[in-house]
Structure formats: structure tokens, C-alpha cells
């Protein structure tokens, strides 16, 4: 029975030791330990929160980057298309221009050739007339170089007229 009856001596010592223990531990052990543990917990909590925030920000940034990149790509494509079109247009217009120019050149060459030919023909005609006159003169001179010939010609001419 005395197993389950309290012993006042032990009760007294337990009370004394436990209260002392509670006081000493609360002041010199639990306080620094709990402060450190809770401070660390707070630190970890904050760090995790910061990490989450950073991750969200990064995601946002990434999305923005993607958007910018997409826009840039689109712009580039537009510019490229533009340039291509311009180039095609330029080539086309250059071709047309060249054709017109060539035609013009051909035309003018043709005109020149024609005028040259005319000039050459005219020159040739003039020269031919000169030659003909010279020849005629020479022939006339020869025909009338002697009196006999002059008389013969005159007679001949007179004959011609008489016959008429």
C-alpha cells in the first residue's frame, strides 16, 4: 500500500528541485533556445517567401521576355518581307527602266543611222553630180578640142535642128 502513498520528503525535494529547474531552465536555457529556433524558423520562412516571390517575378519576367522576343521576331519578319518586296520592286523597276532606255538607245541609233544614210546618200549624189559634170566637161572639152570637131558638132546640131 505504501507504494501508492505519497512520501512527504520526496514530495518536498521534488517540489524544490523542479521549481529550481523550471526557473533556471526558463531563464538560461529555454529562452535562448526558443529565441534562436524561432528566429531561424522566421528566417527560413522569409527566405522561402522571398524565393516564391522571386520565382513569380522571374516567371513574369520570362513571359515578358517571351512577348518581347515574339514581337521582335514579328517585326523582323515584317521588315524582311518589306525588304524583299522592295527589292523585287526595285529589280522590276530597274528592268523596266533599262528596257525603256535600251529601246530609246535603239531608236536613236536607228534615227542616227537613217540620217547618216541620208547624208551619205546626199553626199554621194552631190559627189556623183560633181563627177558627172567633170566627166561631161571633160567629154565636151574633148569633143570641141579641134576646129574640125567643133564644125562637125555644129553641123550635127544643125542637122538635128534641120531635121526637126
Amino acid at each position: 500500500m505504501d507504494l501508492i502513498l505519497p512520501d512527504y520528503g520526496l514530495l518536498f525535494w521534488t517540489a524544490l528541485v523542479f521549481c529550481l529547474l523550471l526557473f533556471l531552465l526558463a531563464k538560461f536555457a529555454w529562452k535562448p533556445i526558443l529565441n534562436a529556433v524561432n528566429a531561424r524558423e522566421q528566417k527560413i520562412h522569409e527566405a522561402l517567401e522571398l524565393a516564391d516571390k522571386t520565382r513569380a517575378e522571374m516567371l513574369l519576367l520570362q513571359a515578358e521576355n517571351e512577348k518581347i522576343l515574339k514581337e521582335a521576331r514579328a517585326e523582323r519578319d515584317a521588315i524582311m518581307n518589306d525588304a524583299k518586296q522592295t527589292a523585287v520592286e526595285m529589280v522590276e523597276s530597274a528592268k523596266n527602266k533599262a528596257k525603256v532606255e535600251a529601246n530609246k538607245i535603239v531608236e536613236s541609233a536607228k534615227a542616227t543611222i537613217a540620217s547618216e544614210k541620208d547624208a551619205a546618200i546626199r553626199d554621194l549624189k552631190n559627189q556623183l553630180a560633181g563627177f558627172s559634170l567633170d566627166i561631161a566637161e571633160k567629154i565636151v572639152r574633148t569633143e570641141l578640142s579641134t576646129d574640125a570637131k567643133q564644125k562637125e558638132l555644129a553641123e550635127k546640131l544643125a542637122d538635128d535642128i534641120n531635121m526637126n
Binding site: L10, W13, L21, L24, F28, A29, P32
Partner: peptide, 29 residues
């Protein structure tokens, strides 16, 4: 009877050990 019995001695040893352990833990922090 307020004797330092076997249990009281054990109580002192236990309290001493707890103080030793917990104070060294507190010192670490």
C-alpha cells in the same frame, strides 16, 4: 522524513544532467 533518499539523489542527478544538457544546448545557440 526529509532524507536524501535514493530517489532524491536520483532527482539531483537528473536535474544536474538536464541543466548540463540544456545549458550546453543554449550555449550553442
Amino acid at each position: 522524513d526529509l532524507s536524501i533518499t535514493k530517489n532524491v539523489t536520483s532527482l539531483f542527478i537528473g536535474a544536474f544532467l538536464i541543466i548540463l544538457i540544456m545549458f550546453s544546448m543554449a550555449r550553442f545557440y
